[in-house]
Amino acid sequence: MNIFRFAGDMTHLISVLVLLLKIYATKSCSGISLKTQELYALVFLSRYLDLFTNYISLYNTLMKLVFIGSSLAIVWCMRMHHAVKRSYDKEVDTFRHYYLVLACFVLATLVNEQFTLREVCWAFSIYLEAVAILPQLVLLQRSGNVDNLTGQYVFFLGAYRAFYILNWIYRYFTEQYFTRWIACIAGIVQTALYADFFYYYFISWKNNAKLQLPA
């Protein structure tokens, strides 16, 4: 475990905590895409299949439980909680995310390390995570102004995989560890999808202005 990997996991954890804070504190999920949350729940469920069979460390197990638990809790909140679901922008969150699931599944059956259930599910979760943010970014562009907590949530979520890329570079030079090219390429695509968001986030931070995404 190196500093970049730890920073990445902590950034990811912070993004989840910021989202939970927003929903709990404001009892609202306005500006949050339910579809992105559903995709992330699927990402964690399909990636952490070996949660109980392949024990790596207490840290690893705890983090997996936190990510699975929080993503399911957020989906449940947005679908079932009486106050929160009222604030869900159903008519704006219209991305056809089922096509993303299908495309990633087909790709995972074609491009994987080994054609085994575990490896196909792992590749599926990696591909799906790379595109899971799309419904959220589309929703932000449609709804124009972004509230602070939502902006911070997306920012930390995007930053975490960037730290993972630094972690893979670090491990390559220090441990001669070659990360799996599927994770590497998907991680680069995933981080690149946030590029324009990061740009507008930086502009709003520099001008101390509200985050505005061009429609």
């Binding site: 990811h12 070996d50 790596i56």
Partner: peptide
């Protein structure tokens, strides 16, 4: 072993 190594990340 490489197996656990590659799956040691989140």
């Amino acid at each position: 072993n490489p197996e656990s190594q590659s799956h040691d990340e989140l």
